[in-house]
Computed example of a mutant assay.
Amino acid sequence: MLQFTKMEGIGNDYVYMDGIHQRVPMDATFISKISDRHFGIGSDGLIVILESEVADFKMRMFNLDGSEGKMCGNGIRCFAKFVYDEHLTKKTTLQIETLSGIKTCELKIENGEVTSVTVDMGKPVTTCREIPVVYDQEEMIDDELVINGIKYRGTAVSMGNPHLVIYRDNLDFNLEKIGPHFEKDPMFPESVNTEFVQVIDEKHLKMRVWERGSGETHACGTGACAVMYASYLNHLCGPEADVELLGGHLQIAYRDGHIFMTGPARTTFRGYIQEEDYR
């Protein structure tokens, strides 16, 4: 029997499992079944809490199709809340190991529980070969690209995972129809998260996101960071902006070469599952 906690950060929801005190399966079959919203727990994927040799904890995150992701901004805020609320640590400043490096989290505590977390998301990357993007220039900043025969202008940014930011006059369109074409285009050898952005004003950005391996989600923390930085590069916002996603708002700031993300984290419920039921 496995204990789990369901958590969400502005609608980006994951199943969290303590991999320190129990053995957690991390294969695609198990992950896709527990993530199924009709026959499983229902989530955007699985996040596992593990011991780390180089930080306070190690985070492994998996998309609902079982593929492993390098980093999840909303996920790491909930991760930080989990380890504090479940008394795995008393620290309010945490170092968390991810596949995209060690991230620092500052916890805001109210009545003994974490209500919000500020994460140092690190330095944004715009070098195409590091994102990676197959492109004939060193960077793609408001440059033309063709996806499924249609011309777009986009800005490519890595926040530990690849993002492509596209600006639109409005966000009322069929994302399910065009999102997969971006995700699977050969231009992106590791596939890509695609953000479609409407600039409300220089302090308010509105977005929808198609996440690789998960489809459209209510929120993507690294995506919000990529949107803010791309907008900063394109002179559409200043060094701080409120980014509005389907699930809520994140405050993103660019300081000293790093991106900082602040937002809520919430536990929705806890439970137990029989592992064999998901095999």
Rank of each mutant, 00 (worst) to 15 (best):
I10W: 09
L205S: 04
S116C: 08
G154I: 07
K90I: 01
L250P: 12
H249P: 00
P189F: 06
I273G: 04
H249W: 13
I20R: 09
F30A: 11
S214Y: 04
I200F: 12
I109S: 03
P186Y: 11
V117I: 10
L236K: 15
L246E: 12
E97C: 03
Y254A: 03
M7V: 03
K90S: 13
L250N: 08
L107N: 01
F182A: 02
R77S: 02
M59Y: 13
R208I: 06
Q251H: 15
L245K: 00
N111H: 12
M71E: 05
I49W: 11
D13L: 06
E211Q: 07
V54M: 11
C237Q: 09
D277M: 10
I131V: 13
R23N: 15
T98I: 01
Q137W: 07
G9R: 11
S214A: 15
C78W: 06
E51H: 15
I131Y: 05
V48K: 12
C72Y: 13
Y278Q: 09
Q274H: 15
T155S: 09
G238P: 03
D172I: 14
K203R: 14
Q22Y: 13
V125W: 00
P189L: 06
N193C: 07
L164W: 10
G221M: 06
D143Y: 13
M71F: 04
N74K: 11
I166F: 08
K206F: 02
M121F: 03
E113S: 02
A241E: 01
M7P: 05
W210C: 04
S35A: 15
L94Y: 11
D18P: 10
G112E: 06
T267D: 07
S231N: 15
K184I: 00
S214I: 08
Q198T: 09
V134L: 14
F182M: 07
Y84C: 00
K177G: 00
P189N: 01
H181I: 01
E130W: 08
A224P: 13
T29W: 14
L236W: 08
V134M: 13
V24N: 09
H181R: 02
G221P: 12
L46Q: 07
E86I: 00
T222K: 08
V15Q: 05
F182R: 03
V199Y: 04
T155F: 12
E183L: 04
F269D: 06
K103G: 01
V227R: 12
I141P: 05
D185T: 06
T89S: 02
L46H: 07
V48C: 09
D36W: 06
Y152P: 03
E130Q: 14
G247L: 06
D27L: 10
G75E: 04
E130L: 14
D85Q: 08
